[in-house]
Simulated scan of single mutants.
Amino acid sequence: MKKVLIITQHFYPEIGSHANRMKHLYMLLKKKNLDVTILTTEPSYPNKKIYINGDFWDEDLLNKDTDHIRRISIKNRKYSNSIFNRLMYYLEIAFKFALLIMKDKHNFDYIFVTSPPIFTGFVGLFAKFKYRCKMILDVRDLWPESLKGVGVFNHVFIIKGFEILEKLLYKKADKIVINSLGFEEHIKKIAGVQDLLFIPNGSIKEELAPLTEKKGKTKKIIYAGNLGLAQNTELIDQLVPFLEDEGIKLTIIGYGVHKKQLIESIKDHKNVTIINPLTKKECFKIIADHDLGLVTLKDKEVFKTVLPGKIIDYMTCGVPIVGIVDGYAKDVINNEEIGLAINEHEPKLILEHIKKLLDDDALRSEMSHKAQQVILSEFNWEININKLVEYIK
């Protein structure tokens, strides 16, 4: 039986697409008769306090699997706008991962390491040489390109150093997995790597929400997910009063460094409901009760390459999407006809697209069914995991 070590900063019971991706990978690889161990951190994203709530620990199989899930504790504060605090957090995790690996007496056939942060990627490289095995690099975001995209870290010489490290990591990997086709050209260009595995974020069949016909004038839209550096929270702020004027309700299930600022800005508007982070299952129930799902990204070149996890969530719940996005995400939404995506940051024009969908029950129903069909055919974990299993076996 092949032995695989997964190294990841985020894992169950944490929320967010990173942790959800690693949870699906871990559980499905074990179902494929692989001996899988995971090295991760104690849950802390977006903050440690929410995991005191036992509702987040809703997977009995994972709760009991203490022999194969190895966690490190972290002292540094992570959830901050400060790039210095974040770097210290990432470095502390990388150091503790490496220390544990250095002392470990086990053997592995494959290391599966996910990046960013790039420091975790280099822990995987260290593990590759320590265990004398192959390394599979899972690229979930282009780093350091995304650092430049969020505009908080633009020191030219340091960025250049990170780019050199990024190229080295790509070249030393035995196989590269990408979760967005938008990454393909960049990785092939800078590292000369041709044979990539595309395994997108996705869902499993049992997660699909039952579809119900949403008729009438409910006019409810939802934003579920990160309110961070990459998301255009300023646009949400500008959009709220226009939605209020049209009697359109907005639900936000959010977390992230810009959450507090956004809530403070829109608190006086009666059409907005703010909900604190929930388990995936509870979040899906609420999403499915809405007419539309909203997704925004800042208008930067690097964000044209990504497919935000909330798009997958909306599709799983059968909720048509209004996307203020460009590039790969825009193409998926428009080409698959599961919503309307525009690269337009004028609130009045966005409102017109929202109203167009809210006024057409038949079109939304058609988009709902198409969204879940796309999940089953293109973003189905139970099918896509076979690409990785075939490589390992």
Results as ranks from 00 to 15, higher is better:
325 V>E: 01
232 N>G: 03
18 H>I: 13
386 N>A: 02
298 K>I: 05
182 G>N: 08
115 S>G: 00
3 K>T: 14
262 L>A: 04
271 N>V: 13
35 D>E: 12
173 A>G: 10
178 I>M: 03
157 F>L: 15
368 S>Y: 01
360 D>S: 02
49 K>Q: 08
277 P>N: 03
3 K>M: 06
81 N>G: 14
77 R>T: 15
377 S>L: 08
158 I>P: 08
357 L>H: 10
364 R>D: 09
246 E>Q: 15
205 K>M: 07
385 I>E: 04
236 I>S: 05
146 S>Y: 05
153 F>M: 08
318 G>R: 11
41 T>L: 03
302 V>K: 00
179 N>L: 09
65 D>Q: 06
2 K>R: 14
68 H>Q: 08
50 I>T: 01
19 A>Q: 04
188 K>F: 11
221 I>R: 03
139 V>I: 15
219 K>I: 13
123 V>A: 02
336 E>C: 11
237 D>K: 15
9 Q>W: 07
146 S>I: 14
19 A>W: 11
362 A>N: 13
75 K>S: 12
187 I>C: 04
189 K>W: 01
276 N>K: 13
173 A>L: 05
327 G>H: 10
275 I>N: 00
184 E>P: 01
126 F>I: 12
28 L>C: 03
247 G>I: 08
384 N>Q: 07
305 T>F: 13
279 T>A: 01
141 D>P: 08
232 N>A: 06
368 S>R: 14
27 M>G: 01
110 Y>I: 06
60 D>C: 01
287 I>V: 15
192 G>D: 09
214 K>R: 13
78 K>G: 13
218 T>S: 12
4 V>M: 06
179 N>I: 15
360 D>G: 02
239 L>T: 09
393 K>G: 06
341 A>E: 05
195 D>L: 11
194 Q>F: 02
47 N>A: 04
133 C>E: 02
256 G>H: 08
65 D>T: 05
319 V>S: 01
276 N>G: 00
41 T>V: 12
240 V>M: 05
